[in-house]
């Protein structure tokens, strides 16, 4: 499982890095970025899903 942010959709709402700071950071414009390779384990998957469910722009994707 892997989490990604679609940079075209992300508008810097700032929800992902507030909810899951271990998974997401931000660039110098304040847009969200995935920290590292984005590979998820059981516990980080939950955090990624919560961030996804709070992204107003629907910019977070979780792939098998």
């Amino acid at each position: 499982m892997k989490v990604t942010i679609d940079a075209e959709l992300c508008q810097g709402q700032g929800r992902c890095f507030a909810i899951a700071p271990d998974l997401f950071g931000f660039d110098d414009l304040g847009n969200g970025i995935v920290i590292g390779d984005g590979v998820l384990n059981e516990s980080s998957l939950k955090h990624a899903q919560l961030a996804q469910a709070n992204c107003p722009e629907h910019a977070i994707f979780i792939e098998e």
């Binding site: 508008q11 810097g12 709402q13 700032g14 304040g30 919560l50 469910a53 709070n54 992204c55 107003p56 722009e57």
Partner: peptide, 20 residues
Amino acid sequence: REENRHVAFGLGIHRCAGSN
């Protein structure tokens, strides 16, 4: 509320620049 995709700061390219 755990899941909250609110749009108080707008949506799209004009998202409030001062939201943080």
